[in-house]
Design a protein around this nucleic acid. Structure first.
Ligand SMILES: [Mn+2]
Ligand SMILES: [Mn+2]
Ligand SMILES: [Zn+2]
Ligand SMILES: [Zn+2]
Lengths: 167, 167
DNA sequence: TGTTAAATAGTAATTATTCTTAAATAGGAA
DNA sequence: TTCCTATTTAAGAATAATTACTATTTAACA
């Protein structure tokens, strides 16, 4: 599941984007990451190869890639934008302590049906489920014990939950 | 479903918060709104009654109310924070054009089960579904026609979808 | 009524992101 | 291959939301 330079070049061409070294490095770094990095994370990662590069270029590049549909922006809180090159439909688990974002690939979540009681003239184009909680390391540090009752979640073992029609 | 000054005062006391006129006005304005206003929206609304009030006070107050659990912060994008005094479990519909936020009270969404394939040591404490799309007025302006296929959503009429165990 | 910790208001500072502009360059045309 | 030009990059300035600092005021309680 590794991606080559030519794969990236073709994606860029398909979107009418020039294949520059900076852009390639930024997109490649994002493709290799599952951490949903910030613009600055990506800058820190590619800067060693491009000592002249400015953070501005990272923002510009991410904006172009997002507009072209090659990446998504994932938002948690209003502090800083996080980016994701994984375009397959999925959802996220967010640690409220360290802000880690973990992918949730459970396909059942991609089958939610239209909610009831919304304005009839509203057109829904997508949806996203954000689970919040504490990652393992944050939980260990804080000495938290698992408290399922606070989540409002039914345990996974409850049958029939979460599914859309498995048509 | 109106709320009185004494109701508010009791909530504040229950959290160990002083009942000041500014704080009462801000919380009252938020309770009366279903628009999920920003700090500045609330400032604009209460400022006429308190010509001396600073926007800073609104931020401070919202921070205190959130820490006390009396309000929630709703985030869409990373631009500005939106606030919600409706504590009943619910979800949101967001217009990507005008940033309107509409409540989604469908109780089926509150019964999602634990997702599969997440780190076993992650403790989920809550989750939130954010539906995105175009509100009626934005859709009319842009001359958009409804395109259900783009949403990935099954129509509401699909039976059995979206439900957790109806225990 | 007096005391005190909490709240307010005014201002300054910070942080993330966007804007502006000039120089560099990728990719197509000649 | 060389030239042309729109795109991209880089540097710095500007903006917008939020937070920090601090002196003054005040709600709550003794
Ligand atoms: Mn992801
Ligand atoms: Mn709401
Ligand atoms: Zn964590
Ligand atoms: Zn709208």
């Amino acid at each position: 599941m590794d991606i080559s330079f030519n794969d990236i070049k073709q994606k860029f061409q398909g979107c009418g984007l020039k294949t520059t070294p900076q852009r390639t490095a930024i997109y490649d770094a994002l493709l290799r990451s599952t951490a949903h990095p910030t613009a600055e994370d990506l800058f820190d990662q590619v800067a060693p190869q491009f000592p002249m590069m400015s953070l501005n270029t990272v923002y510009y590049t991410l904006g172009v890639l997002r507009t072209s549909g090659l990446i998504h922006e994932v938002n948690i809180g209003h502090t800083r934008a996080r980016f994701d090159a994984n375009l397959s439909p999925h959802h996220h688990l967010i640690c409220v302590e360290c802000q880690a974002i973990v992918d949730v690939m459970d396909p059942r979540l991609n089958r939610l049906t239209s909610p009831a009681g919304i304005p009839k003239d509203f057109e829904i184009t997508s949806y996203q489920v954000a689970f919040r909680g504490f990652c393992g390391s944050c939980r260990r540090h804080a000495g938290r014990s698992i408290n399922h009752s606070s989540s409002g979640l039914h345990p996974t073992t409850v049958k029939g939950g979460l599914h859309g029609k498995s048509s």
